[in-house]
């Protein structure tokens, strides 16, 4: 039988406590704000919010494309950034919709370079993460030219506002999805941990099939099972 991945969650009790805290904050503040945001702003405006925030991330994504040795994707990011900034009113509108936005971050770059994921972490407010992803987040913050500029100008509100606005917009797009997962799961924490890891792995592979990770053996035959039981019964007998 295939070896089963361990949960790689050595501080699970701590993570579960932070997860519970995050759920409380989400129910009390984040989700209601996201609902109001979605309720009062038309979709076109919310899409512009997302476009603008994504466009601000473009220099960082460009750098990570390059660091991952993906010049084609870097050029895509550069072309989108130039077009959306110049003709899309500073990034409010998507000018090149045939080249869809793609995400990159330093955590993904570290993974491409071969760094292990490290144990699972739940960060306060931010949510599911890993040791590698957390390092990447910190690095991204300092690599980001807009944050760098803002901090030098003494405009500390800019990075914070970016994080908050991006967070609310993202949350507003998964209200039903998360409700559904919570409703249908029997261990919400474990479900989110599994989904986070799989989505992250997919992002790192840029959506390509997972060639390096062998597929789990789902079609185990029951006959094998029964034979083994017979064998062990014989041995015991």
């Amino acid at each position: 039988m295939a070896a089963f991945e361990e949960a790689n969650d050595p501080i699970e009790p701590v993570n579960r406590a932070i997860f519970a805290f995050n759920q409380g904050v989400d129910k009390a503040v984040i989700k209601p704000v996201a609902q109001v945001y979605r309720g009062i702003l038309p979709e076109a405006v919310r899409d512009s919010v997302r476009n603008f925030m994504r466009n601000l991330r473009a220099p960082l994504i460009f750098a990570n494309d390059l660091l991952q040795g993906e010049p084609d994707r870097a050029m895509e990011t550069f072309g989108r950034f130039a077009a959306n900034t110049l003709w899309g009113l500073g990034g409010l509108f998507e000018i090149v919709p045939d080249k869809p936005h793609h995400e990159e971050d330093l955590g993904q770059t570290l993974a491409v370079w071969g760094a292990g994921e490290g144990p699972y972490l739940v960060l306060p407010i931010i949510g599911p993460s890993s040791v590698r992803h957390t390092f990447g987040r910190v690095g991204d913050y300092f690599m980001d030219p807009i944050n760098y500029w803002a901090n030098h100008q003494g405009e500390d509100w800019i990075p914070i506002t970016r994080t908050v606005v991006t967070g609310i917009d993202s949350r507003s797009r998964v209200i039903e999805t998360l409700d559904e997962i919570e409703r249908t799961s029997i261990d919400f924490y474990a479900a989110i941990r599994s989904l986070y890891r799989q989505q992250r792995a997919d992002l790192i592979r840029n959506g390509a099939p997972g060639e390096d990770s062998p597929l789990p053996d789902i079609s185990i035959d029951f006959e094998d099972d029964e034979n083994q039981e017979k064998t062990s019964a014989l041995k015991e007998g």
């Binding site: 949960a7 261990d187 924490y189 474990a190 799989q198 989505q199 592979r205 997972g210 789990p216 079609s219």
Partner: peptide, 25 residues
């Protein structure tokens, strides 16, 4: 059909991870 993989997320793996967690805990 033995699995459905949505945007890189496998239904079978998600279920296994969740079920294992319940039992392990």
């Amino acid at each position: 059909i033995i699995d459905v993989v949505v945007e890189g997320v496998s239904m079978a793996i998600t279920q296994r991870d969740e079920f294992s967690s319940v039992i392990a805990n």
